[in-house]
Design a protein around this nucleic acid. Structure first.
Length: 271
DNA sequence: AGTAAATCCTGTTCGC
DNA sequence: TGCGAACAGGATTTAC
């Protein structure tokens, strides 16, 4: 499940193969993922030089020297494969570089997306226009969250998944951050105390930073030996640990469903 | 306006 | 052993 740290790790890994390189071949093996591929994708990218890569929320950005940026989203099963031995049925987009590298965007469930956006207008691009602050930037503060949550009755867990409030958090790291901040996932957004928000903001930043660090260290150069980018092992405190002991109090971690997806938390530590 | 639910996908896991 | 149900879940749309 690629969330912000996995996308960041993927982008850093891709940069080693793409930054400064010319794209010599761009091939799509189907017409769409979640959305249609841009019809002009291959034409615009072929022969272009990559001028840099970056990330916004859970989107990866590949900037080229024609004033265009290829924006990809990994959905929930997307990954880039470096030098794949063979192109499989889920390798929907394949890039080749002047240095002779081949990269494949593989996405079995096809929840991902690929778009082409004018670089100068990225901030105005509809999917980006309404995004909240980057969680690792100074713009994410307790005051920002207090303003966004004020008067809201929706559960804090669901509000943190809202990309308009904070951009880039997904189910895993919301569960982990709420655990660290000792906030119950079902607490109404507007009823989270200022003191709790003061714990939550650093909890979000550290849990993400640690995950990025884990990706960089466990993957070594951000790629697994088999060439897959973006997935790494990380020890979680609560995510996926139903009935297992809380690392703080020893009580059983509980799983509930909110908004149709699982939340894990410690009912004793999180209030 | 805010909230909740449905939708899209397929590979994996689980229960009977 | 085999089959179907449940599950994973981000972003978007629809409904209330």
């Amino acid at each position: 499940m690629p969330e912000l740290p996995e996308v960041e790790t993927t982008v850093r890994g891709l940069a080693r193969y793409l930054d400064g390189e010319v794209l010599t071949r761009v091939v799509t093996h189907r017409a769409d993922l979640r959305r249609p591929f841009p019809p002009e994708l291959a034409q615009v990218l072929t022969g272009a030089r990559v001028t840099g890569l970056s990330r916004r929320a859970k989107y990866g950005l590949i900037h080229v020297d024609r004033g265009q940026t290829m924006v990809f989203h990994l959905g929930m099963s997307g990954r880039w494969r470096i030098e794949p031995d063979e192109i499989g049925k889920h390798d929907h987009l394949v890039l080749e570089t002047g240095a002779g590298h081949r990269l494949a965007l593989c996405d079995p469930r096809r929840f991902g997306s690929v778009d082409l956006v004018e670089t100068a207008r990225l901030d105005d691009w509809a999917p980006f226009a309404g995004l909240g602050p980057e969680p690792l930037s100074p713009a994410l503060t307790p005051a920002h969250l207090a303003g966004a949550l004020k008067g809201r009755i929706a559960a804090i867990k669901l509000m943190l998944l809202d990309q308009r409030i904070v951009a880039g958090l997904g189910n895993i790291y919301v569960c982990e951050a709420l655990y660290r901040a000792r906030i119950h996932p079902e607490r109404q957004g507007g009823k989270v105390s200022r003191a709790a928000l003061e714990r939550l903001v650093p909890a979000i930043k550290t849990v993400l930073a640690e995950a990025i660090e884990a990706g960089g260290s466990t993957l070594r150069d951000y790629a697994r030996p088999d060439g897959e980018l973006g997935y790494f092992s990380k020890q979680f405190d609560v995510y996926g640990r139903e009935s297992e002991p809380c690392r703080s109090c020893g009580g059983a971690v509980k799983r509930i469903v909110q908004g149709g997806r699982s939340s894990w938390f410690c009912p004793d530590c999180q209030k």
